[in-house]
């Protein structure tokens, strides 16, 4: 098992999509590459476990389409637009587009970047260390399979004792690419799985 370096990640980004080794990361907003990983930003869509009228979530007994509840925090409401378009009108608003995460609460988020994994590489998603230092933790299902594509779903938890504002569009996670060892048979591009191609965190789809 080996970890892809920055150079290898960049080389693979430029490969044609027909090459099973190609990687896709879009949009790329500046130099987000580390030596052995890439930073991923917080996307604009969230699923919030809001107080609900749902009596009880019963997995495998029909999909609960509206739990957790979908929330959108547009990127364009970020600092620039807030200042440019009407700082006055937005008094009391946060200048940034954020979602507040209360202590010991969790929210489903997704990366702003849409990813396509190569056929010979798995991925692991990690919390960026600065966020970990204020007790924000990302992901309880951090493993990404070869050929997966979509915006990555992040389960963001606040393990601390104070509310934390999560800013849309800011780096929160790192993706590490891990090359598979042995003979690779995944040369034919395959799209599979209920959440393949998702652009936002989706409600769970339990299948018996």
């Amino acid at each position: 098992m080996s970890v892809l370096s920055r150079k290898e990640i960049k080389d693979r980004l430029e490969k044609p999509l027909t090459d099973f080794k190609s990687i896709v990361i879009t949009p790329l907003l500046g130099d987000t590459f580390d030596h052995d990983s890439i930073d991923l930003r917080l996307g604009c869509y969230f699923r919030v476990p809001a107080v609900s009228t749902i009596e009880c979530v019963k997995p495998y007994q029909g999909t609960v389409e509206h739990y957790p509840e979908l929330v959108h925090k547009p990127y364009s409401r970020g600092i620039k637009e807030g200042v440019k378009k009407g700082a006055k009108e937005r008094e009391g608003d946060n200048a940034e587009s954020t979602i507040i995460l209360q202590p010991h609460h969790a929210v489903l988020a997704s990366t702003l970047e849409y990813i396509k994994m190569p056929g010979d590489v798995s991925g692991q998603i990690l919390t960026k260390s600065s966020w970990a230092r204020i007790f924000i933790s990302i992901a309880s299902a951090p493993w990404i399979h070869p050929f997966y594509r979509g915006c990555l779903t992040l389960e963001v938890s606040n393990l601390g004792n104070v509310p934390v504002a999560l800013p849309v569009g800011k780096p929160m996670a790192q993706l590490v690419f891990i090359k598979l060892e042995g003979q690779i048979k995944l040369e034919k591009d395959v799209i599979e799985g209920s959440y393949a191609g998702a652009v936002m965190p989706e409600a769970p789809k339990f299948k018996a």
């Binding site: 430029e14 044609p16 999509l17 027909t18 879009t26 396509k116 594509r149 591009d189 799209i191 191609g197």
Partner: peptide, 20 residues
Amino acid sequence: TACLEHGIVPSTVYNEKKER
């Protein structure tokens, strides 16, 4: 079109000269 055939959001693409 190539992006869509592969199930990919076509916001960053690379041309033959490997330009973004």
